[in-house]
Design a protein around this nucleic acid. Structure first.
Lengths: 125, 125
DNA sequence: ACAACCTTGACACGGTAGTGCTAAGGTTTC
DNA sequence: GAAACCTTAGCACTACCGTGTCAAGGTTGT
């Protein structure tokens, strides 16, 4: 049975045992298990836990941020969607006719209506 | 004074006026201002607000997630750090001698001590 | 000039993240 | 076989996110 138990790993990484379980639940750092189910932390997990700590502190991140970063990292479609949204700062959206784009000089009420129509359904109120 | 006021923008995008201000505070979608300080939303902002809505719903994201994604997008160092951490799943950390890596077959107490030493300071208790 | 907007600032409140602690029960070590 | 670990499950509490609403005051349109 090689590897540090959860309390030992906690002591060396600065996390609490409770947090090590939480971090595992968050999908960030898991350890392997002994035959009886005990968590066993090897050097790689310990290092990962330490660098995680430093990362959060250095950049003021939350664990949930890293959870989201992990999603971004694994989910290609998600990353593409988010990147695209972020990249489109002051840009004309691609799926809309650049033709007139709502004749931006009409009466305000007409503009509002046009905008509503441009956006199909959603809160028909 | 062209552009939709905040209430009009709210009506066409499905957000509340309150949330449009919140989203602006979060650095996600800002509008330009009239000379007297009124928010004025143009078609690009409206589109951005709508797609933001869709993005959150489609992927079950929170606004804070997009805030973090924005940080990742702008802060090169942060992105590099996060990516590196995520990429180092079952990998040996780079700044450590691959030589022995703590002679992983010693007595558990020695291992613990070694691990503590490997990690310089931090919670000296 | 009055109604109907807008601004910022603040309080409030439900939901979730992060964290400790306890309980009930299995494992390891002496 | 008792002491000192570990496991999961759950309660509790703080802090922040998301959101509505209200207050005090400026702007706009008729």
């Amino acid at each position: 049975m090689d590897g540090l138990t959860i309390a030992e790993a906690a002591a060396t990484t600065g996390w609490s045992a409770r947090m090590l379980r939480y971090i595992e639940d968050a999908g960030l750092v898991a350890s392997r298990r002994s035959s009886s189910g005990y968590r066993l932390y090897g050097p790689e997990e310990l290092q990962r836990l330490r660098t995680l700590r430093e990362l959060l502190e250095k950049y003021g991140l939350a664990l949930s941020d890293m959870g989201f970063a992990r999603r971004l990292h694994h989910d290609e479609a998600l990353r593409a969607a988010v990147d695209e949204w972020l990249a489109a700062s002051p840009r004309r959206p691609t799926h809309v006719e650049p033709a007139d784009w709502l004749g931006w000089e009409q009466d305000k009420h007409e503009r509002l209506l046009a905008a509503v129509y441009a956006n199909n359904e959603e809160h028909t109120a």
